[in-house]
Simulated assay, not measured.
Amino acid sequence: MPQGAFEELYEQLQRLYQEGDYPEALRLATGALEQYPDQRTSLDYWRMTMAARTGDTALTLQVLKQALERGQWYSELLLRRSPSFQPLQGNPKFEKLVSLNQGVAENEQKHAFPIFTLRPENRCRRGGPACPLLLGLHTNAGTVNSSLGFWRPAATAGWLVAAPQSSQAIWKDAYVWDDRETAEVEIQHHYATLSRNYAIDTAHTILAGHSMGGEIAIWLALRGSIEARGFLAIGPGGPYMDDLAEWEPLLRARTPRSLRGYVLVGEKDRSIPHDYIKKLVKQMNSAGIQCKLESLPEVAHDYTPAYDAAILLALKYLDA
């Protein structure tokens, strides 16, 4: 999810879209290109969709063509199913660009690393002393690197850290956990692979995640998708966090076990539902799951070293 100053712009774009002011949204997205060059792929998507909404097919095709020339790409699902692009389906020029886009996307994803590991030097090797395992899930619309800073302290403290990247791409460098059943299958596969290749203390596995990755970590832990000692959710957000009723079946059906939870939030994080997070932690404790909530002052959504000490404290609590 876009953060910081860009988040405010993103909220403006969403408001203009909901109000049907497509020309102003197009102007705003175009004007932001120089200020937010690292968000070019997202801004170009806004430009394409708003141009399409205003009937400017030529501009839509021009933005997509230039994006591909820069090495950007978008998921075929977005280009095929977005309502904004429906009038373009079958347009020969659009179809040619979609085909080129798919080739760029497939070529890049061939070289993507599905999981990144960190471990203490000369530790966690197969056949040697076992290490506790932290599985760290990245934020939505991000990559492994988007949230890797959160998990590094665990590796320095003796944990084997495994950070998988979702296979669900929306565009270049933007992978999501929207299909949680697919995410579950992938995490289970990664866990099985890690168990074969490393010495893992299976009684000390923590599911961790940032933002939507945090929501998925909680969901996987409650489902018992892998045998986890607990979960660590940092700034959790997503559809379940916005509708706490989604958690009730999982809390009722949870099999008795010593699962623990720890939720870390930044007081200045404007992107997450703080009140709902507090209510969820309370619900978990009422359901017999020991869950602690810690709020860090002067901290927002993205990683900063201010999180490090709190993360290590959380791991001690979860692994007690």
Rank of each mutant, 00 (worst) to 15 (best):
G213F: 03
G214N: 14
I216R: 09
I216N: 09
I216T: 15
A217I: 08
I218L: 14
W219K: 11
W219N: 14
L220I: 07
L220D: 09
A221S: 12
A221H: 01
L222M: 07
L222V: 05
R223M: 00
R223A: 03
R223N: 13
G224N: 02
G224H: 07
G224C: 04
S225D: 08
I226Y: 14
E227N: 13
E227P: 02
A228V: 04
A228S: 15
F231T: 02
L232M: 09
I234R: 03
G235L: 06
G235I: 05
P236S: 03
G237I: 01
G237R: 10
P239T: 11
M241K: 04
M241T: 05
D243G: 02
D243K: 14
L244D: 08
L244C: 10
L244T: 05
A245C: 02
E246D: 09
E246K: 12
E246H: 12
W247K: 08
E248Q: 15
E248T: 15
P249D: 11
P249Q: 11
L250E: 03
L251I: 06
R252K: 15
R252V: 13
R252N: 13
A253N: 15
A253E: 15
R254C: 05
T255H: 13
T255E: 15
P256E: 13
S258H: 14
S258L: 12
L259I: 07
R260T: 06
R260D: 00
R260L: 02
G261W: 00
G261H: 01
G261D: 03
Y262T: 02
L264R: 13
L264W: 14
L264K: 14
L264M: 14
G266W: 05
K268F: 13
K268N: 15
R270Q: 14
S271D: 10
I272A: 07
